[in-house]
Design a protein around this nucleic acid. Structure first.
Lengths: 134, 134
DNA sequence: CTGCAGTCTGGACCCAGGTCCAGAGTCAAG
DNA sequence: CTTGACTCTGGACCTGGGTCCAGACTGCAG
């Protein structure tokens, strides 16, 4: 072990083979070492890095941000890592706020709609049709 | 008034001209009437419909769902309109839940990170690198 | 040695929801 | 009539994050 084919690497990191190659193409992973045949070979550090990427993605980071995090990690720049995480946190919060705004609008409309009767009495259709709403 | 060029329509609905044509292409708006020159002409009902689309989009509906809402509106099917809104509400709620899950993970990490010192002591980097995390 | 699974490449394609373009024709103010 | 703003068309392009493909080659079990 400690010498993995792309298929084994992908399986152990729980990503698709094409995704590994895509990450290499887009600079997120360094070009892999090759066998004489041209087959890629990976070691433990690449597996670790790939898992790092997967976890960061689960935390809502974009691939571009992950590339930056990996650089900062290599540079051991803890301050900037923390700052990046805080910015992402603020970004996530904004998205939550926006969705909650939408949710409260929808909640009010569905709660007010009897679900039967004249279309003219449906608050949902009225809200969408009315001149006044923003 | 009551006869609008595509530019006037777009302006009054606060939408780009290309977007109006795109909506027509994708069936969200019926093919517009034309002048002898081929220029599109619109009336008040198209303006209303376009605004409906814009408001529904602000409530988080996709264009496909909006097409469906418009059909239901034309059919005056209040029950299905309400059901569509409730499904969308559940969808929004799922997205909020997911983002809140991410937020709490990020919050814990940034709170625990001193923002300086050894990289090995940075909980953010550790969480992303560790074997244990999912 | 055979046969099948794995891997290689470059490039096309997917999703949604548009946006932008060139080249041609049109409308309206002055 | 001229000029500038508007509109027409079909099609290409954009973002992000992959996914899929054909055709060729390789690795390994039996």
């Amino acid at each position: 072990m400690d010498s993995l084919s792309i298929g084994q690497l992908a399986k152990q990191a729980a990503v698709a083979i094409d995704t590994v190659r895509y990450y290499e193409r887009s600079g997120l992973l360094a070009p892999a070492g090759r066998l004489a045949s041209g087959y890629r070979r990976y070691g433990a550090s690449e597996l670790k890095r790939l898992r790092f990427i997967r976890r960061a993605k689960a935390l809502g980071f974009t691939l571009e941000e992950i590339a930056s995090l990996l650089t900062l990690s290599d540079e051991r720049d803890v301050a900037k890592v923390k700052q990046t995480a805080e910015l992402k946190l603020a970004d996530i919060q904004h998205r939550i706020d926006e969705l909650e705004r939408i949710r409260s609008g929808l909640k009010a409309l569905t709660a007010a709609c009897p679900g039967h009767g004249r279309a003219e009495a449906c608050p949902i259709l009225n809200a969408l049709s009315q001149e006044s709403a923003s």
